[in-house]
Each structure stands twice: as structure tokens, then as C-alpha cells.
Amino acid sequence: MDSKLTTTHPMVTADSQSVSSQEEIVLSVQHVKKKIGKKWIIKDVTFEVKAGEIFGFLGPNGAGKTTTIRMLVNLIRPTEGTINICGYDVTKQPEKALAYVGSIVENPEMYPYLTGWENLEHFARMQPGVDEKRIQEVTEIVRLDERIHDKVSKYSLGMRQRLGIAQALLGRPKLLILDEPTNGLDPKGIRDMRIFIRELASQGMAVFVSSHLLSEIQLLCDRVAIVGRGSVIAVGGVTELVEDTQHLVIWELEPQAQGEQILQSIPSIQVLDLESSNLDNDTAASLRPHSIITATPEEYISTTIATLVQAGIQIHNVRKLSPTLEQLFLGVTEGEFIE
């Protein structure tokens, strides 16, 4: 697994036959650009996905994630650059390349007036080698066998999501593309989805997952590409990327003013106000009026606590926050991408 953080991408075109299955590159995206009207929606996207890995595609809403995904499955034609799936160019040989792909783009939209089973039959007729036995198999994989003969209009969102995945799995794909797969699911549904995706990857399938939530990518993915404003900013291992990021620490001290003074006096600690700290809503709501937010490198936390104790300051609470996507952005771009 490529654990190094890379921002440049000297890549060799994948040849699926000659590479061993462990390192087999299933999806290769090379310098893809897209112009719509006069605007470059996608400026430069390059990354590769290998068999058996879960690859995250992380970026804020509007960064070009969905447009990129649509290009991967030939819904949108790239203006420049190439996309290869298992060695076949998606634009030039869609009938070959797409045979290796199962996808859900945005919401899993199926025909509401057909039953789940009829929907699967419909898509089974559109690809070779999918028989009734396979349809039965995928309905069991997504645990939809009880309701499969009901009309899709009667399905809940979670069931539609599962039917969408069943549809994506029909053709035994080597690459599964899921666009925000946990959108609209309840916490249990999200957990189930994670377990399920890991299972698929352990069987050798490459899974490409897009998300705007860092936590989700952290919990699920091996590697990640971070996108912002139509470009891939960084590609690398998820753990490494997160470790390189500054951590926010929240302090509750008494007396507060004196404590804040001490924090400010330590050079490697930066005291932030609420606006510039980019906290997510849940955390921001949990703050008390006297909470102090700082950006503190992890290794300084314990020494800082010691300093505060020595100065006779009472520490009511110290909380290290897991980084948010915005902070990760700050880390990899040194701020240039944040408006």
C-alpha cells in the first residue's frame, strides 16, 4: 500500500494482465479535466485504485466529487485525460470497461413501479453472464430476500440503498463505486454498510467510496484522495494524512484568564477563536463560554498540562478533537484552499 503522501503523480498505464493480482490496478485516472461551458469544473484529477483496497474520495460538497464519479462510469465525457478500468478506456470502450464496474451514482434510483426482483432482472438483462441464481445470490448478500418481491415504491431509503448495491454487485464487478453510500442512513445502517464494504474488499474487490465526512473515510478507507475545487490535492494512506494534521484541543481552566495567558506564552500552541477553528456543529454546541480552543501538536499536550498544574491552575477538562476535513485541508494545502 502506498503510504507516502504524494502530490505529484508519475504513473504508468495499468496493464491488468501482466500485474499480479495483489498489486493489480483496477482503476487508473490520469490528468482528467472537464470543462462545462467556459468553466473548468475539474482541473486535474489523477489517482489509482488497486484490487482489494477501499479507496476514499474526500472533499467538501461542490469540490467535483460527483462530476468525477460520473466521468468514471461514462455518464460524462472528460474534456482531457484518460480513465482506464481493468485496462480498458472508459470513453473509447465503454462496453468492455463498464463490465468490470458496479456503481451507485448519488441516490440509488430504481424503477418504483417494478419490484426489487424485477429491477434486478432488468439490469441483469443488460450484462452478460448474470442468471437467476446470481440475482438470488445478490439479494441474499444484501439481505433483501424477504421483501424482494415488493414494489420498490414501498421500500425505505435503507432498502433502496441495499437494492442499489445488489444491482451494482450483479455483474461480479472488480470495482465498486459508491457515491456517499451512508447518506440518509441511520447510525446502525451506517455501521452495517461499513462492515459490508470491508467484507467485499476482503474478497478482492476494489471499492471506491466518496464522502464529505473525514470520520467516515477514516473509519472505512485504506487510502484516500483529497479533492478541493476540482483538483486532487493529495493522495495517501488515511492514517498518515491524519497524523500530519494539527489537532484541536479544548481546555477548561480556572482561573480562565491566567490559564489562557500561559497557553498563549507557549510558542507551539496557537489559541483560536470559535470562527477560525472550523469546528463541526456538534462540538461547537458542546462548548462552554469559558472554553479555550487551541491548535496543539499532539506531543505538547502532556507538557502543557504539567506547566499549567505547576502554575497552580485547575484543569477541569482537556479534550483532544479528531480533525475535521477542513483541518485536514489546512494541513495539506497550508490554507490556500480555504476561503
Partner: peptide, 8 residues
């Protein structure tokens, strides 16, 4: 989207 992302 489903219709056009099949290998056809």
C-alpha cells in the same frame, strides 16, 4: 444513470 452505466 443505471441504464447508461451498464456495459452497453
Amino acid at each position: 444513470k443505471m441504464l447508461l452505466t451498464r456495459p452497453i
